[in-house]
């Protein structure tokens, strides 16, 4: 139902065949089987060293706890707490990633193993879960286990508790100073240039990319000389189908939009549970930016062209992934 509005351009196989393939795959999908096999293989090993493994885990946990209570850990200048992110925050997000949204990651090899790169993704889903899932995807699926540093809106840093967690998870304010500093330090930076226009768009506009800000991310990448990796996320649009926007409430609360979904706010906290959609995150071919002269970052025409190139590539991949998708939930 989600791909009803999608026009599959450039796709060589017609839609009917997709529908056909869906019927064929109605028998157990290959993926869960693979998962089950993996689990079966992993289990005996776990049983063998069961006690010892648990002891080691407890010991590791206690050592971690000891460092935490004595304050003996390090954060970087952005407030990124690597240890907390690896040991706690990632483990909290992983079940959501593996079990709930069953995220399929494609094209991870397009992310360089070292050095800076700017990952540009579409933004959707009312709550920025897509950014967090992208962070888990990069960390868990990249062979170098790279950490993604997300750029977040200033609203994130205004909210108590949220700002603290965001900083500790390695996120920082979406401004060119911070982005450039991270890129020049060789970090992997994730940005969603659609911002609130993307995340807070009505359900009817799903998978239609909004304007990409003013293209500031391109000039930042150019200045830092790092490649731009386009990223398309499918599945996040349907987690909270936003059918309405209570603008007055939003204005009263000082937030950019107040979502009304079929379940929220009618069911209260239960309505805040996202729908268990099946996600795909595809990283595309990197777009090199190191071939330009230093003054290129000031050239508005080049900025517009590069922004459009990135935008087109993401939109294109989105359509492609939507056509391949069997259903929203499986």
């Amino acid at each position: 139902m989600a791909d009803a509005k999608v026009i599959p351009f450039d796709e060589d196989r017609p839609r009917r065949r997709v529908a056909g393939s869906r019927r064929v795959r109605a028998v157990p999908a290959p993926e869960p089987v693979a998962e089950a096999v993996e689990a079966a293989v992993a289990e005996p090993a776990a049983v063998e060293s069961g006690g010892a493994a648990w002891d080691r885990r407890i010991a590791g946990g206690l050592a971690f706890l000891r460092r935490r209570v004595t304050g003996d850990y390090e954060v970087d200048e952005f407030g990124y707490d690597k240890e907390l992110t690896d040991q706690v925050l990632m483990s909290l997000m992983r079940p959501l990633f593996d079990k709930y949204f069953r995220v399929e990651v494609k094209g991870i090899e397009n992310i360089p193993a070292e050095g800076g790169a700017l990952i540009v993704a579409n933004h959707s889903g009312t709550l920025p879960l897509d950014g967090l899932m992208m962070q888990v995807a990069v960390h868990d699926h990249h062979p170098a286990q790279r950490h993604l540093r997300l750029l977040a809106a200033d609203l994130v840093f205004m909210l108590p508790v949220v700002n603290e967690l965001a900083r500790k998870a390695g996120h920082t304010l979406a401004c060119s100073e911070d982005a450039q500093r991270l890129l020049e330090a060789g970090e992997l930076v994730g940005v969603m240039p659609e911002g609130f226009k993307g995340i807070g768009k009505p359900f009817g506009d799903r998978y239609k990319l909004q304007r990409f800000g003013r293209g500031g991310f391109v000039s930042t990448a150019l200045r830092a000389g790092t490649p731009i990796v386009p990223c398309s996320i499918v599945g996040a649009e349907e987690i909270y189908p936003m059918v309405g926007n209570a603008k007055t409430v939003a204005r009263l609360l000082g937030i950019p939009y107040f979502p009304i979904t079929p379940t929220f706010p009618w069911l209260g906290p239960l309505g805040a549970v996202p729908l268990p959609t099946k996600w795909t995150i595809q990283f595309g071919e990197p777009i090199a930016t190191d071939g330009y002269p230093p003054e290129a970052a000031e050239d508005p025409m080049l900025m517009f062209n590069l922004t459009d190139e990135v935008r087109e590539q993401i939109q294109h991949t989105l359509y492609k992934l939507l056509v391949q998708r069997r259903s929203v939930f499986f």
Partner: peptide, 26 residues
Amino acid sequence: GQVVDRVAAALKVDSLNVGVAGAEEG
């Protein structure tokens, strides 16, 4: 820190030495 160490020591009773050794190592 000592409190955490004591917890580790208490756990040694029903687990193997690995736990404490690991904690010290950590």
